[in-house]
Amino acid sequence: MQTPEAKNRYLPLGTNFTDTHPLLIDTEAAAEDIQSAAHQRIRAAADLLETFSCLTFEQADLKDISHITNALYLLVQDGC
């Protein structure tokens, strides 16, 4: 069981699909480090969107589109 201090210090990411929270943000980390991690995820999503925009639906398999949108969702949600 977590102590009240640990519950206040660690903020779960919004992309957890279960009742447990395996991925957490340390709210006591330096603001620059948190912002850098968020920026890295948003930049990766933007880069993936740029690549995705160059494809046509004839070039992509339907399962690939699903995989790409899922990755984009996780990156953007975590970055936000």
Rank of each mutant, 00 (worst) to 15 (best):
59 Q>L: 05
26 D>F: 02
76 V>M: 10
12 P>W: 14
59 Q>A: 13
62 L>Q: 15
12 P>R: 15
60 A>D: 11
50 E>I: 05
51 T>L: 11
62 L>F: 08
52 F>H: 13
49 L>M: 12
46 A>V: 06
72 L>I: 09
35 Q>Y: 07
43 R>D: 12
1 M>L: 09
38 A>R: 15
59 Q>E: 15
38 A>T: 05
49 L>T: 11
36 S>Y: 04
22 P>R: 13
33 D>Q: 10
14 G>H: 12
30 A>D: 13
8 N>K: 14
47 D>H: 09
44 A>M: 01
71 A>Y: 02
46 A>Q: 08
31 A>C: 02
1 M>G: 14
46 A>F: 04
54 C>W: 03
4 P>T: 10
49 L>K: 13
10 Y>P: 01
61 D>K: 14
20 T>L: 03
10 Y>V: 04
40 Q>S: 04
40 Q>D: 08
37 A>Y: 09
7 K>I: 03
44 A>P: 02
15 T>F: 03
16 N>F: 01
9 R>D: 07
24 L>C: 04
21 H>W: 01
74 L>R: 15
12 P>G: 03
15 T>P: 00
39 H>L: 08
11 L>T: 14
66 S>R: 12
25 I>L: 01
31 A>V: 09
58 E>K: 14
70 N>Q: 10
65 I>E: 07
69 T>G: 02
62 L>S: 15
44 A>R: 07
19 D>I: 08
27 T>C: 08
4 P>H: 03
49 L>I: 09
58 E>N: 13
24 L>I: 10
67 H>D: 15
23 L>F: 09
52 F>C: 02
40 Q>T: 06
2 Q>W: 06
70 N>C: 01
29 A>Y: 01
32 E>V: 02
27 T>M: 11
1 M>D: 13
6 A>N: 05
35 Q>I: 02
53 S>N: 13
80 C>F: 05
27 T>S: 12
62 L>W: 10
52 F>A: 14
6 A>D: 11
69 T>L: 06
8 N>C: 07
9 R>V: 05
47 D>G: 11
3 T>N: 10
55 L>R: 15
57 F>H: 12
54 C>T: 14
9 R>W: 06
68 I>H: 06
65 I>M: 10
62 L>T: 14
47 D>L: 05
38 A>I: 01
29 A>R: 10
51 T>V: 10
54 C>F: 02
60 A>Q: 13
29 A>V: 00
2 Q>V: 02
80 C>I: 11
27 T>Y: 06
50 E>W: 04
